[in-house]
Simulated scan of single mutants.
Amino acid sequence: MNETQRQAGTGQGILLLCGSCLPILGAVLLGPVLAEVQAHFIATPNVAALTPVMLTIPALMIAVFSPLAGWLADRFGRRLLLLIGLLVYTLFGTAPLYLQGLHAIVLSRAGLGLAEAVVMTICTALIGDYFEGRSRMLWLSLQGAVASFAAAVFFGLGGALGEFGWRTPFWLYVAGIVMFPFALKLLWEPSRPHRLTPHLGAQTLPWRVLAVAYPFALVTGIALLMVPIQLSFILHGLGLDSPATAGLLSAGNQASVLAGALLFRLLVRFGYVPVFGGGFFAAGAGLLLVSVSKGQGGLLLGGCLNGFGCGLLLVGLITWALAALPSKVRGVGAGGFNSCVFLGEFLSPLVILLLRHGGVSLVSAMAFCGWGLVALILPALLAPLAIRVQAAALPAAD
């Protein structure tokens, strides 16, 4: 279904934005009810480790399989793979509604992550395929902004639905099958020659850029979910147990990711230096504030500051990377970027768990991670100066 004359417009852009939100739903929906899930399965061995893993294992699967999804999309085409991914997303996403064991639920979440790897990678690649230049930058900025807005909404919904039982939020995964007929009608296989040829190898990837963007994306992924995942446990320690409260505070965190993503287009006019440096400063300072807060106000402010920095970084890094990626390997490059972000999301609770096993309190572990982000300000300032990628050059690499 390769159509050479069709031009993408608002309909295609909105649909791809919605598709980009689906993996975000998988990542944030259960944050407000983690404490309830752990209490329900308290008799299950290793429940303290399995409960956060249930939330983040989709991110691990995205991290592992996004490059493969990108390669398959580059080699065989985008559209059919995306349609299959939407169906599989709903199949595995709703499975915990009837599964009874924690281990089975964790496995179903792994299957969800496979579908998310396909959906997220192809939606990002199609934005690069369908749009050019400044239009592409606009849709990438909106991708980060809309995903962050959706995360805020999903956190609020997850907390509200969690009041009716921890299984109730899983109904929202029907979103995949709802999107299917719209994707079938509105999307087509890109006409540009994006498939890999035998002469295209690793040398076609802009590794000087990716060697910076990928590690920064990994760290950003770790920071992105640190507040939402740990917030219910921090509130529990303060005697403020409530899924709704955790959901609202987490929604504030993700709404600030939206604000950071939207502000990117203003800051990038001055180059990527203020985007990267300011992003790491805000993300780290937010975690430091969360670590010393004793009430909801401080937690909200710290979470919002952290989210703002993460929003700047996510949109800035993917825009910087895609600007340097040739169209023939855009799927692989976007898959690698998503892999790093979601690997970071999977590692986020494990980093805290490792620090806790070392005898560090939860709030001290958050402070340690905050200082780690602040320490990245200097390399974040130097990287775009050493490796220049002009936003106006989109898509100069084609």
Rank of each mutant, 00 (worst) to 15 (best):
A151L: 03
A95V: 04
V47R: 03
R136W: 06
V292L: 11
R356M: 14
P215S: 08
T4N: 11
A175T: 09
L80I: 13
G297N: 12
W171P: 03
R78Q: 08
M179T: 01
G128I: 01
I84N: 09
V209D: 08
G9K: 07
L347T: 04
L289T: 07
A321N: 08
A393V: 03
A104Q: 13
A95D: 03
I42A: 15
A386G: 11
P23E: 06
E345C: 14
V341K: 07
L258T: 15
L231K: 09
F216E: 06
F155I: 06
L301N: 04
R356C: 10
L289P: 00
K294A: 14
A147W: 02
L238F: 07
A175Q: 03
C310S: 11
S242E: 09
L112Q: 04
P206Q: 05
G252Q: 05
P379T: 06
L314Y: 13
A391H: 04
L112H: 03
S191K: 03
S327M: 12
Q296S: 13
I234F: 05
A255M: 12
I234V: 15
Y89V: 04
L196S: 11
G85C: 06
L350Y: 09
A125F: 02
P45L: 02
L224T: 14
Y89F: 15
A392F: 05
S339N: 06
L249E: 11
V329C: 08
Q12S: 08
A251K: 03
A202R: 12
Y98K: 10
V119N: 04
V53G: 01
I234P: 13
G239M: 02
A251V: 05
G144P: 13
R134M: 06
D241R: 14
E132M: 11
F180H: 05
R134S: 09
P96N: 02
M179C: 09
L266K: 13
I122P: 00
G335L: 01
L87W: 04
W188D: 00
M179Q: 02
A375V: 10
E36N: 15
L50E: 05
G13L: 01
T220Y: 10
L378N: 04
L289K: 00
G252F: 09
V374I: 14
A175I: 05
Y214E: 11
L80G: 11
V47P: 07
L114E: 05
S148F: 10
G93I: 05
M137N: 15
S66N: 09
G295K: 07
L350A: 10
A251G: 11
P23S: 06
P243D: 04
S293C: 03
S232H: 08
L353M: 14
G239Y: 03
L248D: 07
L249S: 09
F164Q: 14
V33K: 02
W171M: 13
P58Y: 00
F164E: 09
P32Q: 08
A397S: 14
Q143K: 11
P169Q: 10
Q390L: 14
S191P: 12
T4R: 14
A160N: 04
